[in-house]
Design a protein around this nucleic acid. Sequence first.
RNA 1: GCACCCAUAGCUCAGCUGGAUAGAGCGUUGCCCUCCGAAGGCAAAGGCCGCACGUUCGAAUCGUGCUGGGUGCACCA
Length: 581
Amino acid sequence: MNLFADIRALVVASVDAMVTAGTLPAGLDLSAVSVEPPRDPAHGDMATNAAMVLAKPAGQPPRVIADALALQLASDPRVLRTDVAGPGFLNLTLAPAVWQGLVRAALQQGVDFGRSAFGSGLRVNIEFVSANPTGPMHVGHVRGAVVGDALARLLAFAGWNVTREYYINDGGAQVDVLARSAYERYREAHGLEPEIREGLYPGDYLVAVGTALKARFGDTLLDKGEQYWLTEIRDIASSMMMDEIRGDLLALGVTMDVYSSEKALYGTGQIEAAIQTLRDMGLIYEGTLEPPKGKEPEDWEPRVQTLFRSTAHGDDVDRPVQKSDGSWTYFAPDIAYHYDKVQRGFDALIDIFGADHGGYVKRMKAAVSALSGGRVPLDIKLVQLVKLYKNGEPFKMSKRAGTFVTLRDVVEQAGADVTRFMMLTRKNDVTLDFDFAKVLEQSKDNPVFYVQYANARVNSILRRARDAGLAVDDATLADADLTKLSHPAELTLAGKIAEWPRLVEIAARGNEPHRIAFYLYELASDFHALWNRGNDEPSLRFLQEGNAATSTAKIALARATSVVISSALGILGVSPAEEMR
RNA sequence: GCACCCAUAGCUCAGCUGGAUAGAGCGUUGCCCUCCGAAGGCAAAGGCCGCACGUUCGAAUCGUGCUGGGUGCACCA
């Protein structure tokens, strides 16, 4: 199914044949042999570095090997032409039938075209968002949510067994703050003036919590010290916030498979067990850390703490798991949580963090490395900031006033589809500009529009073909005489379609969903280019009046394009837009 | 002081486990379109891939050291 893999297999088989024939010595390492599309299409459809890679171990000049390999490869019907270039590149031009076959495959397999067994059904856990349950999701969470969700869809498409997970940070001081903030709103619900002191959450989203508390407790908690209500209100408020967050995620098209609670780790012995496991490995000790150099905190004093020897697993300094008063640091439940994920049997873990958690990466990897005996890889993706603009002007938000831009605001302004696509037009470790005005523009400058417009054009073709009495269901199109697709512009588009399965694997291998967005843009671009050429060259139009066979072949190409567009957009979680309005 | 991320065309960014003459969009310039398959099209100009060494047949890509920008740095979460 993956053309590039097929051709690579052909190259490897050809090398083997040469070994058998005695042209090449036995025992060559072929792992470095690659088959890729050449950067310059003029060089052909495929290029292999086999001759250059094998030159040294085989003790022969690369061009000699290349010439012999070319001869061998030329006997395969898929190979139309071979030529040796540069330092020993072997360029292959494939027979049109190869591309035509790919178009057929796309039509036959539909949304499964490009689906891969790359992940071999292994279980991967992707933890993302994990926002504190202290309020609705704000704009800073959007990107992480989209990247995590798209990555989940991508890996599932690439053959992984994916679990999406949200870690609820409900065990720390911030949920106490939430409870106190909610208590003031509870007083407000009774007509009292709320005292939103410095450090409390001022957002009016807590008004509803106050109302709910009043309905539940009446006036029984008024004028009581927090020892009477803190725990209960904390649980109620954070649970209500989680409902809010679930709704926010849904508005963005994101659903989670598992919600794990930090609080639930306390009192169960899980933290103790995780730390004990590390202790048994000799990785826990009592000690004092050096103060950070250069920027020493004012209130620094040496303290004896329980430390995790993370330096044994690649970290720069050892990290405290217990505070000087003996309580756990935030790191401790995080260790327990990741240990839990390891014990649940995942073969790989992925965390999506905000960029401000960069300092946390090494210690987390160290913990997972230690607790899994190095068996479970943890990949941590740091997602950089999104800068909001409106017509080129920075979009201000004020946290202090409690009127910050929420995820809902973004989705309501731009729509979930546009938001999701735009969030994936940069790799995760680069900051991203998001302009509310530009993302809604209906022009070529807007990639979302550009891609959806291509899909809409295909649907327009299909509609008009049906009106003209042609059968254009996928089964009929797959049976079309595709040898009629021979123009270079058509084969270019077919070639781009052929890249899809390979692209899925590349993107999945690097956990890089943004590659899908860029591929979509290129695919749309090739399609639009072909469409536009139809303006000057009527023979390139998809509908050829009075020639059903040719029309059907061309429509098959268009439809194959839209099959891949739909599939790729599906991985991004974006709907494909049947027509433009 | 240390760690992590970034540095590619005037601007915003791609660049696929190291490959050939480094790509796209915007902007600029020129031509075409106003007989709707044009919510535009074609083409051109534009680069010491931050700098310097190193590894390699071969480096934007890998290593080391710099420069500049961002983020984070015990007892917070």
